[in-house]
Design a protein around this nucleic acid. Structure first.
Lengths: 256, 256
DNA sequence: ACCAATTTGTCCGTATGTATG
DNA sequence: TCATACATACGGACAAATTGG
């Protein structure tokens, strides 16, 4: 038998090595967010590779949000934004053919817990944003498109108010995928907008009173109500999300 | 007043346009996972840009996992893998200085629910993997490093058994960040390994019996136990995760 | 097992637009 | 206004690996 004394060598393209080297310094805190990275020419010199190679490496980190072009077009270390991450996760879920059932099952669990946490930790500023959101909802009760935007935002603010970034990132992708469907519920269920408004109003009130249980109970009801509406609007719970539901995800290309 | 008839133009670098164009076709299903993309030369011709530009665009999609170099080094459309996504999310959380408190708060909620779902949906094959995992845990009770790997794996298998990819992605990042800390608990709490083994054994049993409540209760206990151990091991709940805890995340560079 | 064509990874040089001082 | 520095994009080149005879 031939002797197998050597592990398979890890052969990686130079542009990956560049990206990994920079990422490692970021992850280990040797360079921190908002720190400027040198110019491309600097990196060329430091790594001893060609500019094209450096640029390809930079693109990898740019996409994962760890580098960005800041003022003066210079390179800065950057914190990957939660909104961008959530969008990427949502898109992945779509490609994996996630079903409505998986989404609502998740939200039935996460949303009540989220608002319970929010009741404990919400700030006055966040309450104010919720009040503005609810007021806008009341004013635009006829505009279904706008209404589903406001719905998505309402739940995002609450998630933010939970003051737990792990939780925030856990629920945001599901929220991004499911709440836009509100729009289709409105078409099928005429009383849906007013019921939504009532629920949002009550939940806001519960949050103002710091009433954890009341908030949780109403959110629970709200989500169940949502699922019922979803079914009545003709959505197949075990089917995957339809193209029209994804328009908002696709048009986000611009700032991602 | 000057007439404002024009919207601000979206001015984006060519390599982004390339990436967006391809991504849009993927998201709209015009090209599907495992479909081959043309060669770089093809893309050069189709987009009418230079090869360097095409390559930079490809890097963006490569990083987000929508494109990969497959067999024969050709470009294929690809499903972003959950493991890769979870790792990226974990790293982002670290950069955002996530605290132990946020992690355990999340897992105290998600893990019991996860195992309850798993009790309903777990397959025989997944049960078998859990049995193997628990058997290995019993055999390697002395090897702390190996033990914390097995712990992480145990919980990942359960998450997979819940058969809800949204839920899976919601908890995996927290799992990746917190369970490696088991290692440090073992150092501070001598009886921790045997307690962990007992809990894992009992949860496995509950899953075999499809006993949702028993599974949930034990997981709840297990997580609380974990948190206690974490505190006894000297971890500051409101502090961020220490460097040593992240070693596994950094060495994963190779296959990401 | 050898050869010719293709393709990727990498490098070099250059032009252009834009921002800085 | 001019000069400098830098990012973007282009064109061309070559070696190594892979493919397809």
């Amino acid at each position: 038998m031939r002797q197998n004394k050597f592990k398979k060598l890890e052969i990686m393209p130079a542009y990956r090595l560049v990206a990994d080297a920079i990422e490692k310094q970021i992850m280990t805190g040797q360079i921190k967010p908002e720190d400027p990275i040198g110019t491309e020419a600097d990196l060329v010199e430091q790594f001893g590779v060609n500019r094209s190679t450096v640029r390809e490496g930079i693109r990898l980190l740019e996409q994962s949000g760890m580098l960005r072009r800041g003022e003066k077009r210079r390179l800065y270390v950057s914190l990957p934004g939660y909104d961008k991450l959530a969008t990427r996760i949502s898109r992945s879920l779509v490609l994996h053919k996630v079903t409505f059932r998986e989404l609502v099952e998740t939200l039935e669990i996460l949303e009540p817990t989220t608002i319970a946490l929010a009741a404990k930790h919400i700030t006055e500023e966040q309450l104010e944003r919720l009040r503005i959101n609810v007021a806008a909802t009341e004013k635009e009760l006829e505009d279904r498109d706008r209404l589903s935007q406001l719905d998505t935002e309402f739940h995002s603010i609450i998630a933010e108010a939970a003051h737990n970034s792990v939780f925030l990132l856990a629920r945001e992708p599901a929220g991004l995928l499911i709440y836009p469907a509100t729009q289709y519920i409105f078409e099928a269920v005429p009383e849906a907008p007013s019921r939504l408004l009532e629920a949002h109003k009550t939940m806001l009130q519960a949050l103002e009173e710091r009433d954890e249980e009341k908030a949780r109970v109403w959110m629970d009801k709200h989500v169940r109500d949502f699922v019922k509406g979803l079914v009545r609007s003709g959505a197949e719970l075990d089917g995957q999300i339809a193209q029209p539901h994804l328009a908002h995800l696709l048009s986000l290309d611009t700032y991602l």
